[in-house]
Design a protein around this nucleic acid. Structure first.
Length: 112
DNA sequence: TGCATGACCTGAG
DNA sequence: GCTCAGGCCATGC
């Protein structure tokens, strides 16, 4: 349940604000397993089987590349979703990735 | 129990 | 500055 790594990832991904994106490494680091960044992607890969609606399209790699677009219904679905939120995507890559980048640690900042 | 895989990240050449 | 290779953790069979 809560202790499940996958659930932890889903929780963070669902906390991503509208029009913002984050990287697998950022989530992994937030969970305390920065070296298990690969697990983050895997957890999202099972998001469909988990029965939860996870905005995995907001999660990209460190380069802002839509590496997980293949896990969606269509390779263009992920891009459409991002563009729908105001995020520009070109060549399977997010434009101004640094500007739309969002760190899970910002949540703690708000709490503080 | 052990091996192989994975939507990654970091370091070195 | 770019490219190649290795390593990390968690899950499935």
């Amino acid at each position: 349940m809560e202790a499940d790594f996958s659930q932890q990832v889903y929780q963070v991904v669902k906390l991503i604000p509208y029009g913002r994106v984050t990287s697998y490494g950022a989530i992994a680091k937030y969970l305390g397993t920065a070296r298990a960044s690969r697990m983050v992607g895997w957890a999202l890969n099972k998001c469909g089987s988990s029965g939860e609606n996870i905005p995995a399209h907001r999660v990209l790699n460190r380069k802002g590349l839509l590496t997980g677009k293949a896990a969606f219904a269509g390779e263009k679905v992920m891009q459409e979703l991002l563009e729908s939120e105001g995020i520009k995507v070109k060549d399977d890559q997010v434009v101004d990735f640094e500007k739309v980048f969002w760190d899970p640690f910002e949540l703690d900042k708000e709490i503080i």
